[in-house]
């Protein structure tokens, strides 16, 4: 089971993402964006990690979305292979039109706007631990395959542009109706409160992660690779053994691939 961790110029989470992939029992390698794109087809799944591809020039993710590797990833997505886009990877998937429906750019991840009591209290880059509620059905999405609906995870974010918006309200309605909303920002008790600090970036409907209609492509703003080991969690002792909540995203991918092979 081989996973390609896609590296664009400016990607900066590829190494820890690769560690997470391997720790879950999968083989993996960092796949540079300028390798022959046909080589991508040899892999069983893909992760587009976080960072600042092309320095976020023009807008986050758009330059990377024009690279030939993305055309190949689109084909592999249509073949049912799993793809997880994390943070900038999510932005790239949206700008390439692979998410949400595979038929064009239907969403934007706009600049963060933090709102409380009807007032804008903060804007721009924000880095914090967030609570996520898994809103999809079990096995709906490759990246949350073994999560039950309603489970709550604590995973950190670090971004300036994660405010999911659409010019067409029907896009958001369709995402909700079709069960494509995978993660939403929530309180510690799982309540969806559309106010900062629960909604950390002003995202419509508190959406933190979505999948495509088929469920094999997941895009999420939070960074599961930064909550993979228990020692990464700020409330744990630094020498504590074991895993953190982020592991379940990569473990899900592995289980999805295993079951798809049967």
């Amino acid at each position: 089971m081989r996973i390609a961790v896609i590296q664009f110029p400016g990607t900066n989470c590829e190494h820890e993402t690769l560690v997470a992939v391997k720790e879950c029992g999968m083989e993996g390698e960092i796949f540079r964006w300028n390798r022959p794109e046909q080589e991508l087809c040899e892999f069983d799944g893909y992760v587009i990690p976080g960072g600042f591809s092309y320095q976020d020039r023009v807008r986050a993710g758009v330059i990377a979305s024009k690279e030939p590797v993305m055309a190949t990833l689109r084909e592999e997505a249509a073949n049912g292979k799993p793809i997880i886009g994390i943070c900038n990877g999510f932005q790239i998937l949206v700008e390439s039109g692979i998410l949400p429906f595979g038929d064009g750019v239907r969403l934007a991840l706009a600049q963060n706007v933090m709102i409380r009591g009807g007032e804008i209290v903060r804007r721009g880059y924000y880095c914090a631990w967030t609570m996520l509620r898994h809103d999809a059905e079990e096995k709906r999405c490759s990246g949350s395959y073994i999560l039950r609906r309603g489970e709550i995870l604590s995973i950190p974010i670090a971004h300036a542009e994660g405010n999911l918006v659409s010019a067409d309200k029907r896009v958001i309605e369709r995402l909700i109706d079709d069960g494509q909303v995978v993660f939403r920002y929530c309180s510690e008790r799982g309540e969806i409160i559309n106010e900062f600090p629960v909604n950390v970036n002003g995202s419509t409907e508190n959406i933190a992660g979505i999948c495509n209609p088929e469920g094999n492509v997941l895009g999420m703003m939070p960074h599961p690779e930064r909550a993979f080991f228990a020692w990464q969690l700020p409330w744990k002792h630094p020498r504590v053994q074991g895993y953190g909540p982020g592991r379940i995203i990569f473990e899900s991918m592995r289980r999805y691939i295993e079951e798809r092979r049967l």
Binding site: V58, R59, V62, K66, E95, V105, R106, L107, A108, A110, V165, S166, A167, D168
Partner: peptide, 9 residues
Amino acid sequence: ELLVNPNKD
């Protein structure tokens, strides 16, 4: 094709 994302621009 490149300069604008119509969902915000």
